[in-house]
Amino acid sequence: MLPAAMINGLMYGAIYALVALGLTLIYGVLHIINFAHGAMLMLSLYAAFFLFHLFGIDPYLAIVIVTPAAFVFGYVIYRWGVGKLSGGRDQNILLITLGLSIIIENGALFFFTGDQQTVSLSYSYDAVDLGFVFLSYPKIISFFASLLICLLLWALMTKTDLGRAIRAVAKQREGARLVGIDVENIFAITFGIGIACLGAAGCMLLPIFYVDPYTGNIFVVIAFTIVVLGGMGSIVGALLGGFIIGITESVGGLLLGESLGQIGISLIFILILILKPTGLFGSKV
């Protein structure tokens, strides 16, 4: 069963990585910890759910709608929300995002009720038989789509002018300002890209999970672990960290039972912080 557990871990790891990607990017550039990350993931899940429920749009196709929408949402929230209201203080940014998460979660409760929602796709239970394990189509699609998105983001960050500007701001805020980069705009764009990652993650997650107003939090601690493991701000690190954590969770569950098996994640979290706090790829973006 070990190979099966590893394959399963890998599959989930890619999606975890996508959730972590948004977090690591926002942290790497803006140096803020977004407490509303889980709430925003939940919103993306609902967006994908309603597109499916009301218009019959397949969640995987909904990516092209939800991701840009999430970007705009993130941009607006930062530009006219988090960035303005916090006065730039770290502890206040923390609380603004916390306040935001309270508003979003309870807004979801108010508008969508606490009812748990799932989707059933025509191919939900079709699977590829590897002999020792079945891989369902949704998991396979989610896996490759997540890889693709990581790749696209990596390309965006390394090959484009926007990416260079973002990295410049991450390294040297003031310097970037001096050479004429609109730092506030770059911050908002980065925040938007981070939330866009969640938009994609929501679409990937919906077919294999469920959504209610509190679902997002289920993935938050895991996302933090991945960010730390991969190195804060590192895209490659997030992807690799996602795989490692996915496999750790899965194999830990197999060996120690699904309850105690969760211990592996916290142990890696602690050990990496103590032994190599910069993570596996600890460059700053």
Partner: peptide, 20 residues
């Protein structure tokens, strides 16, 4: 008898254990 955490994100292992 298989105990699992709340929440559990991934039931594949449990399914395989049941299968065996």
């Amino acid at each position: 008898t298989i105990k699992h955490a709340n929440p559990t994100r991934n039931f594949d292992n449990i399914a395989l254990r049941i299968k065996s």
